[in-house]
Write a protein that binds this DNA or RNA. Sequence first.
DNA 1: AATGAATGAGGATTCATTCAT
DNA 2: GATGAATGAATCCTCATTCAT
Lengths: 205, 205, 205, 205
Amino acid sequence: MNTRSSALVAETGRRNEAAILNAAIHAFGTKSFNGASMRDVAKGAGTSLSNLYNYFPSKSKLLAAAMRHANDELQRRVRTAVDQAGDDAPSRLREAVRAHVGFVVDHRVAMVVSTNDVRFLDAEDRDALVVDRDATEATFERIIAQGTTEGSFHTPYADDAARAILGAAGAIAGWYRPDGPLSRGQLAEQYARFALALVEGPLPR
Amino acid sequence: MNTRSSALVAETGRRNEAAILNAAIHAFGTKSFNGASMRDVAKGAGTSLSNLYNYFPSKSKLLAAAMRHANDELQRRVRTAVDQAGDDAPSRLREAVRAHVGFVVDHRVAMVVSTNDVRFLDAEDRDALVVDRDATEATFERIIAQGTTEGSFHTPYADDAARAILGAAGAIAGWYRPDGPLSRGQLAEQYARFALALVEGPLPR
Amino acid sequence: MNTRSSALVAETGRRNEAAILNAAIHAFGTKSFNGASMRDVAKGAGTSLSNLYNYFPSKSKLLAAAMRHANDELQRRVRTAVDQAGDDAPSRLREAVRAHVGFVVDHRVAMVVSTNDVRFLDAEDRDALVVDRDATEATFERIIAQGTTEGSFHTPYADDAARAILGAAGAIAGWYRPDGPLSRGQLAEQYARFALALVEGPLPR
Amino acid sequence: MNTRSSALVAETGRRNEAAILNAAIHAFGTKSFNGASMRDVAKGAGTSLSNLYNYFPSKSKLLAAAMRHANDELQRRVRTAVDQAGDDAPSRLREAVRAHVGFVVDHRVAMVVSTNDVRFLDAEDRDALVVDRDATEATFERIIAQGTTEGSFHTPYADDAARAILGAAGAIAGWYRPDGPLSRGQLAEQYARFALALVEGPLPR
DNA sequence: AATGAATGAGGATTCATTCAT
DNA sequence: GATGAATGAATCCTCATTCAT
């Protein structure tokens, strides 16, 4: 019951905690924060309702933890990809976008939670998350700035292009179906090119 | 109390109906469908809770009506813009994007409802909405196909570019602030160029 | 089910409100504020749980309203008694004590609520109640001061005698049983004498 | 954290037991039996929730033990005081009242628990406590009877005067503040005189 | 003794909806 | 159309208690 094909949180040490977090992501992503009940989460995690509160003090804190995990994983993937790419802006942007799209495809529900339910966090948790989120955005912004400086990207709107790219990529979560016509790889490829074109960078022929 | 600067639904004939719809869009957009109560809507519309049911038979049908209105307005704007543009794909795409972005900026909350809450509609209403939505998407797809055929757009992914453009534009609702550094006009201008670049079309210098 | 022998709140106009208040006094007095559930109150009032909230916004506000009613009735009785007594301090004290004891006997549960559950009110409601309560206490203090000035009471502790008298009278609620050896009238008589003796005033032979 | 200025139960041998009992008295006295949770008690005692059950089999039994301790201490103080007083009823009553008031002042919360929460004991425990309580009351009754027989007290209501005196003294717990205008000693003095006056006994000039 | 994890029952409160007026 | 009162189901969360360690 717990073996959802691609759980976001790995079960290391604290069995239940991971199970609860994954169930929460699933429930919130599917039915939205307010539409999913703690009972739903408990059922999904295979534990009792009250036991949830031994791990997370409130529904909102559970959401915060779930979103933190999702964001960490996204950042980890993007950073790794950028680090392993070449030094030039085009290949770095390309790999960053591919990694980002890969995450969105692998964890569509987590992505939905991330974009829809931030508003239900405590002010404190929300602020912390926004900081993290901005860090991811900043990674893209830096690459684009680098490309502009280097002369490989010619967009006059370098400052705002990152948001457009991340917006397009994030929206994938809303419509992608793994059994649809596009494979994960094709999609990543497409969006990498869209991104390069958008910043008016060099395109493979 | 009802005079929200830019109400989506105009008050023609049925006073209350428009007030209720606008209040619903505001409430659902702000607190999400499940987070907003019918009491919230009633309060926002300046009428009594029970009176809501004289206009809409259920919360879900109210949501459906609200989304229908939002979608109609979006489609109207985009179509008008396209009709008034030149005959060539680049200017048509440019105007379509400008119109779309304009709508998103003017009705951010409605946009949020539209993208987040479709899942709470009855199957029937959801299907109807998806059809309408696809129509808007198809408008963009047709323009891109035209441009590709004409030879002005060179993207190899003509079939999927519309979704990327609409995704980027829709995401604006999540972060745009009217008192921020970007004016409505500048934003429309930016995204029009992003779109043209993305489809690898001709860019003004 | 509602016809408790001596309801504190009379049913005038708003049927349900009186029924709820009386049920609340009964439930809180019997099982204490935290031990009584809103369901208990609803059952006692013959209405549904959720309907309670159409009359009182929270359990704590319901308690506040109940205590307000109890205090009003107590004050009313004491004032009437004092007004109808002679002008001399001894007969005024006598009548005040008799009225107070009468109230305690008639509404023992209300008295229990009043003395035990003040701490569960909102700060605001608690303050308001304390003011009212002090007013009752002040009535006794004034009489004692008058008696001291007139020379009929000789206690050296005139300032604190009221609290002792009210304490003794309030405690009656904890042990009095209507079917016990003491009648309501005898009890009132006893405590009136106790009070006069305590302030070292003139005693009937 | 456990060192409350005047703990009722001394730490002899079983550290934890005393800590738990004192924490229970504090919690129940502050928030009432139903308002205080076993978690509150555990926190106050500096131990774990589950460990409480190694000392007391249930919340209600814990309450019983706490009340037993409070009552024992009260009785001990009153008896000692009476034993050390002279043989005449007036000085015995005087010392008994002083001791009783002293206890109430020193252990206000314990007194609150004692008077408010008896009803939450098991029938068995409640009966046992009532017996103990009656013993304390009987001490006062005996002194008053003695005084009446000796001819030093003239109240016609000798049988019921004890309850009035104890009621007045017990109520002190509800309003006394150590930082208020009355010292512990003054208060004891006042109530001793109130008691003597109430039974119509001889008063110091 | 001591603990952390677990649980079923029950707590106050809110909700969408209905109905009599 | 419009309203206030009514309700059953569901919400989040807390509780006393147990159990394995």
